[in-house]
Design a protein around this nucleic acid. Structure first.
Length: 291
DNA sequence: CAAGTGCCTTTATC
DNA sequence: AGATAAAGGCACT
């Protein structure tokens, strides 16, 4: 049964951009419907103007998952600190940060290191197909995201077959830690940014960038400001005046950032854009990538 | 079409 | 602390 949700004023939302912008990797567009597996359920969602239609999921879950309960117009005003930020916001107005499952998000971003989005999608698709349980919906086959237990027991070979490369070891070790130590990632939603980040950094394959992505995309830490190559480029091109020349010269030459350089950039983002800095990051990331 | 480059970085080592 | 190297393989040019 298709349920209809009319997006009221103040509830600006763009489903397509939100699913395409590189924060989530397992949604598929079929015709004008988006199909996605969330938890153990297959959702079908489409947007027609200010109407959001969905199937096989309750409205409350939809609101929660797509972040419809946050006051986006207010956040966008708040992060529009300068001309560049306002341009990025204007270009993709309606992009919302989703509230993903923390376990799936953690594995996704461990896999995402030093990879492009198409390759990330492929890895997660293969992981789910091989290790996730099968779900039939509308005569189509879907796979739930594999549990920590399943990945903890996976052989290195079968993980490597998913295209993980050297990440296979990190995924398995991270899965083992979650499973063996009965880690409850959801509980990190109640923790503050610093405490939650500290916990995430304990997982193999998780550095500051991956931790920030998990904090932002699944643990409701909207102040998290992940700095990847694209965001670094944005800073170099548009915000260099906020840093000493020496620092800017240094990070423009290097291929990768040291931990302290990363911390400098990420902390600057949080201070400059405020408590919803993650939204600024996502708009600028997507804006920079699509030029 | 082949070869080169880049990729939402982290870890190990010195 | 800071510098340096190594680590799949896929997608795009």
């Amino acid at each position: 049964m298709v349920v209809l949700l009319r997006l009221g004023r103040g509830c600006v939302f763009d489903l397509g951009v939100s699913l395409c912008c590189g924060q989530v990797f397992r949604w598929e567009l079929v015709g004008d419907w988006w199909w996605g597996v969330v938890g153990d359920g297959v959702w079908r969602v489409r947007q027609v103007g200010d109407r959001l239609e969905f199937e096989n999921v309750e409205e409350e879950r939809v609101r929660e998952y797509f972040g419809l309960n946050v006051d986006l117009p207010r956040i966008l005003r708040e992060i529009g600190k300068d001309e560049y930020a306002r341009k990025a916001v204007e270009a993709f107005k309606g992009l919302r940060i989703l509230r993903q499952d923390p376990w799936e998000c953690l594995v996704s971003y461990v896999c995402a290191t030093y990879k492009g989005i198409p390759a990330i999608k492929k890895m997660l698709f293969e992981l789910s197909r091989r290790f996730g349980h099968k779900i039939m919906f509308e005569n189509r086959t879907f796979y739930a995201f594999p549990t920590a237990e399943k990945l903890a027991r996976a052989s290195m070979n079968r993980l490597a077959e998913c295209g993980l490369g050297y990440r296979a070891r990190y995924v398995r070790e991270t899965a083992r830690k979650v499973h063996d130590e009965h880690v409850n990632l959801e509980s990190l939603r109640k923790a503050g940014y610093d405490d939650a980040q500290k916990e995430l950094l304990e997982f193999p394959g998780v550095g500051p960038k991956v931790a920030d992505c998990v904090l932002l995309f699944s643990l409701e830490k909207l102040e998290a400001f992940p700095v990847d190559v694209w965001v670094r480029r944005v800073i170099l091109r548009h915000y260099a005046q906020h840093f000493p020349d020496k620092f800017i010269n240094k990070i423009s030459e290097e291929k990768s950032l040291s931990n302290s350089e990363y911390a400098t950039l990420s902390l600057w983002g949080r201070k400059y854009f405020g408590k919803h800095a993650g939204y600024a990051q996502e708009y600028m990331y997507h804006y920079e990538r699509t030029r």
